[in-house]
Design a protein around this nucleic acid. Sequence first.
DNA 1: CCGTCATGTCGCCATCCGACGACATGACGA
DNA 2: TCGTCATGTCGTCGGATGGCGACATGACGG
Lengths: 148, 148
Amino acid sequence: MRSLLAITKALSDANRVRIVCALERGELCVCQIQELLGLAHSTTSKHLSLLAAAGLLDVRKEGRWAYYRLADEEARAGLREVVGWLCRQAAQEKHVAEDRRRLDAILRIPPEELCQLQANGSKSCSSAPATRAGARSRRASRTRSKAT
Amino acid sequence: MRSLLAITKALSDANRVRIVCALERGELCVCQIQELLGLAHSTTSKHLSLLAAAGLLDVRKEGRWAYYRLADEEARAGLREVVGWLCRQAAQEKHVAEDRRRLDAILRIPPEELCQLQANGSKSCSSAPATRAGARSRRASRTRSKAT
DNA sequence: CCGTCATGTCGCCATCCGACGACATGACGA
DNA sequence: TCGTCATGTCGTCGGATGGCGACATGACGG
């Protein structure tokens, strides 16, 4: 009952379901997920830790950055089955469809830019992609140029 | 996100998972589930209501008695898939295996007897089936003889 | 080394949730 | 009709949980 409940409890929160659905499209770094959810980074980190502890997510650390993705070994415990069901159900909810749109916008912003904006206190930079965010980010894109 | 979260939240509690797994063997009346869980009847009733509200259970009222079973229309919303996965995962947990044993014992006690014992304050009559519970229940078994 | 930065952890607070007892409801039997 | 009985509902209470800010950690750049 331990691990089973860990999984069901992990999937019983709206923001965590949003994370899982977002990661179905591929791995994301913490700041991108934070931007998608619109939560404080501490809260985001806690959700990610909880999902990872339940075996649903894997982490890949690269320097100061952390990339989360759906666990590769899902098939082992039959997790892939539930995750697939979850995302299929979620796809019918408008909230998740909205998230897909927002994620598209977020992915167009370089992650370093995201972190800068988040540090500066601007809460929803993804809802204002019209600011030509990419322009100012040329400067900062040295550090992580190798990462996707 | 509404109904999806209702389902995942409903399955995020150990006692509710136990209920779902127990009902995989067939419908049960409230007093039998209450006895299996060892909870107050108000708590049991609340759990059942929550599961039914999420669409996981159906109720069948017969006189003063209420029988709960896994929802027939699960296939419609793809619920059967999750319930199947849940019970398969749960079957590997010793808690649920223990529940199967206890449920066997409970099913050997006439429901009216169960309710009498519960009303008399004896908490775990299923753990003491050696009292020849069936003997005294001959008197009371008129009312519900047609059920089951 | 030292500052900066992305992330993780901790402590706090508001809210949610599961547990219970007490009472309400509706059905059966007298 | 009236008491009894199985179940449902309500109010309450304590613990769990999600949210945040503040601080710790470890990596990069100087």
